[in-house]
């Protein structure tokens, strides 16, 4: 299981933003995406996850092993922490394992309604979703927003010691150092040229 991206070009709102991207990520490895705001990190992650089609190139990883996570993490305020996680586990046909509550420091919050959690606790719950769905290839868009330093360390150690240690893959867009010892990819050189071809509005230029 390898994530292979070759000669990828992605578009936002019909105009190409990134082009000529090629990289591969081996099992147990992570890749951190860097670049200024607006360079297209979110667009790239959504394209990798299959939420939008690329305008050129290919993304290859085994089918039904990818998962996408952004700051909006699909947490329902009216459900308890356990119910939220059980739902996502069920949708993915996985079992809700107890270790996940410990890994994301949710043990004491199990029966709380998600609506009563603080912003940071909610983020931990959102990230814990990644631990129950049993997906190997994670596409993470700013996963640590509104987490305190302690929680960031906790998430990083889950990523390193559980997900990657079990042969998982992660592609992460983040501004802070997770301490993952992962290669970084600066997207700036791949910024699409103003006259780049392949956007859906190309026919009109």
């Amino acid at each position: 299981m390898v994530l292979t991206v070759s000669d990828l070009a992605v578009a936002r709102g019909g105009a190409p933003v990134l082009e000529g991207l090629s990289f591969s990520v081996a099992p147990g490895e992570a890749l951190v995406l860097r670049g200024p705001n607006g360079i297209g990190k979110t667009t790239l992650l959504r394209t990798l996850a299959g939420l939008q089609p690329p305008i050129a190139g290919t993304v290859n990883f085994p089918e039904d092993t990818g998962a996408y996570a952004s700051h909006a993490d699909g947490i329902k305020a009216q459900l308890t922490v356990t119910e939220n996680l059980a739902f996502w586990a069920d949708v993915h046909g996985a079992d809700l394992v107890d270790s996940v509550f410990e890994a994301f420091d949710l043990v004491d919050l199990r029966d709380r309604f998600a609506g009563t959690l603080s912003a940071g606790q909610k983020r931990r719950l959102g990230l814990a979703r990644l631990g129950v769905i049993g997906r190997d290839v994670l596409f993470l868009d700013e996963p640590t927003v509104s987490l305190d330093g302690f929680s960031v360390k906790m998430f990083a150690s889950w990523l390193r010691d559980t997900h990657l240690a079990l042969g998982g893959i992660a592609v992460i867009a983040t501004h802070i150092d997770l301490g993952l010892d992962a290669p970084e990819l600066d997207l700036t050189p791949f910024k699409a040229a103003p006259d780049a071809r392949g956007g859906s509005d190309e026919a009109f230029l």
Binding site: G13, V17, D195, D201, F204, L205
Partner: peptide, 12 residues
């Protein structure tokens, strides 16, 4: 559409 496409390119 052409105007919009050109504007989008100029902004990026």
């Amino acid at each position: 559409r052409r105007i919009k496409a050109l504007e989008a390119r100029m902004r990026s």
